[in-house]
Simulated scan of single mutants.
Amino acid sequence: MTLALVTMSHSPLLEYVNPPADVKAGVDAAFDAVRAFVTDFDPDLVINIGPDHYNGFFYDIMPPFCIGYDAVGVGDFGTQAGPLNVATDTARALTEFLMQEGIDMTVSLRMEVDHGAVQPMEIIYGDFTAKPVVPIFINSVAPPFTPLKRIRELGEAIGRFASTELPDQKVLLIGSGGLSHEPPVPQIATATPEVRASLLGGGRHLTPEARDARQQRVISAAKDFAAGINVVKPLAPEWDQELMRILASGDLSPIDAWTPDEMSEIAGNSSHEVRTWIAAYAALGAAGPYTVQYSFYKPIPEYIAGFGVTAATLD
């Protein structure tokens, strides 16, 4: 078994807004760096840990985490639509392993994934079917949230599975999301009756017209945020960089004390997407000591995100 990791912020706005040229060049260089890293590693399997933004998971049933035995991209914000190349037997074996480890997993025999899971595969490979994948959803937008200690334990169990059950495979862990940001994702506590119905499942399988209207709201909000208009929650670079420092250290235990309310207050309602990073780094650490080989960070208002990209390997 050989394990490597890539974590990256994603943004549905990459192709829809224009940050300053030097900022865009920095992000492009970061993507080039992880493409080269993954090409050199050449994994046999990708374990793709991502969030969802009320495109595949809704409040009719909202699990803290879920493994897909099959998965379909919904095609939001111009990302690929259609079936992923899911390693179903491995997904099933991982689920059974996690349950034996005391992690109560939810499973989906037809997981629907949005840009949160699709965009990293497209950035790295240009095609989300390029490698066999095990998709793992972690709830990152819909309170209540499971404690971060539980996310760390989930990740550690994933790492033990890769170490013991996939001895002859090279496995790439992808954690996608965050860092600090608060885009216009609706909150159930303040939702209007119409929005509440959408969050309860009415927003599933949108018409092209409804999806375009939803996306235009996000694009408009990004442009306003970059211009200093209607700022809901400023980005939190110090919080972002402290998280990245802890993850790089190999000792993730300090994160156990972080609470969801504090995260929302300091870093925004969508900062919970860093759960995908935590799970991925915990998985890598469970396989052995590691070193971060590449790290990029920039607060980018045009993307409404503290934008980070890292790559790491076992020592």
Rank of each mutant, 00 (worst) to 15 (best):
L3D: 07
P301H: 08
V134S: 05
Y303T: 04
A221G: 09
I246C: 02
L5H: 06
Y69E: 10
T259M: 07
E165K: 15
A222V: 01
A4T: 06
G306H: 03
S180T: 04
E265T: 12
V309K: 03
E262T: 14
P144W: 04
D127H: 05
A213K: 14
D42F: 09
T310L: 11
R214A: 15
P289L: 01
L166R: 06
H205I: 12
S108C: 13
Q100E: 15
L247E: 03
I255H: 01
R211Q: 15
I123T: 14
V274R: 11
P208T: 12
V309G: 06
P289K: 08
D251H: 10
S220H: 14
L284V: 08
R160S: 08
N230K: 12
L314T: 11
A280V: 06
L172A: 02
R211C: 08
Y303S: 07
L14K: 05
K170M: 03
V86M: 00
E238N: 14
C66G: 00
G56T: 02
L206A: 13
I67T: 06
A189E: 14
D42S: 14
D60T: 09
V133A: 13
Y69H: 14
H10W: 05
R160M: 11
P83H: 13
A267C: 08
F307N: 03
G56S: 05
L148P: 06
V34H: 04
W239C: 05
G306F: 04
L13I: 00
Q100T: 12
P51K: 01
E242N: 15
R245M: 09
I158C: 07
S11H: 05
Q187V: 15
T88N: 13
R245G: 11
A221R: 03
P254V: 01
W258T: 02
S220W: 09
